[in-house]
Amino acid sequence: MQGFDPKLFTDFAGRVGHGGSLGITYVDHGEDWVELGLEYAEKLIGVTETGVIASGPIISLMDMATSMAIWVRLGRFRHQATLDLRVDYLRPAVPGRRIIGRGECYRVTNSVAFVRGVAHDGDSADPVAHVTGTFMFTK
C-alpha cells in the first residue's frame, strides 16, 4: 500500500466528478480491500413515495470501491476499465441510512483484476447487494 492512499484519492474524488456528485466518502481499507460510504440524500432517491435510494448510486459506489481495492492491492494507481461488474441487488436500502460498500481484489494477472464486494446499510449480515467483477488494465 506504499504508493496509493485511498483516503487521499477519495477525498479528491468526493469533491469532483461522479464521486463528488454522489457524495462518496472514504471509510477504511486494508491490504486488498477498500470501504467507501454513500450518505443518504434526497437527490439519490429512486421512488419518492418510499424514500429508497435508487440502485444506480449503489452500483457506482461498488464500482469505485472495487476499483480502488485493485489499486490498494497493487500499491499504486493503474489505468483500468470495468470489463464486467455483476450486481445482485438483494433488497432496498433502508431510507435514511448510510450505505457502506466494501470492495475486495482477490486476484491480479498481467491484464485483468478480479474483484468482489458487498454493500450494506449497517447490517453486513443482511446486505443490500453483492458484486463480482473484472477490470481490464489499459496501460
Rank of each mutant, 00 (worst) to 15 (best):
H120K: 10
V115C: 01
I70W: 01
D126I: 14
G117S: 06
D5I: 09
L44E: 12
V94G: 11
M136C: 09
R98N: 08
R86G: 10
L61M: 07
A113I: 03
I99M: 10
D84M: 04
G122S: 09
R91W: 12
V115M: 03
R86E: 12
N110P: 02
T10D: 05
T50D: 14
A81W: 04
V118C: 14
D11H: 07
I53A: 12
L85Q: 03
W71P: 00
L85M: 15
M1K: 07
M1Y: 11
C105P: 01
A65R: 00
W33G: 00
A13H: 12
W33E: 00
M68V: 00
V128W: 07
L61H: 05
E42L: 14
R116Y: 00
D84V: 07
M136H: 06
M1W: 09
I24T: 03
L83C: 05
R98Y: 12
M136F: 09
I24Q: 02
G19T: 01
V131N: 05
H130W: 15
V27K: 14
R91C: 14
R78D: 06
R98T: 15
V34I: 13
G19S: 08
V87F: 04
E42Y: 08
F137A: 05
G46P: 06
V47S: 15
P95M: 14
V118A: 06
V87H: 14
I99R: 04
M62K: 08
T134A: 13
A93Y: 03
E39H: 13
I100Q: 09
M136P: 01
D88T: 14
G101K: 07
G117M: 04
A69C: 07
V112K: 01
G3L: 08
D88M: 10
G117E: 01
T82M: 02
V128A: 14
T132I: 15
L22D: 07
L22N: 06
R78A: 06
R116L: 00
T48I: 14
E39L: 08
G19H: 01
R73G: 00
Y26C: 07
H79A: 13
G30P: 04
A125Y: 06
P95D: 15
G101E: 00
D123S: 13
L90M: 15
M68R: 03
G14F: 08
A119E: 10
M64F: 03
G17K: 09
V27R: 11
S67G: 15
V27F: 09
G23E: 09
V34P: 05
G122L: 10
H18E: 09
K7M: 09
A129N: 01
S55W: 06
I70E: 00
D84Y: 03
G75K: 01
H79N: 13
A41V: 05
V131H: 02
G17T: 00
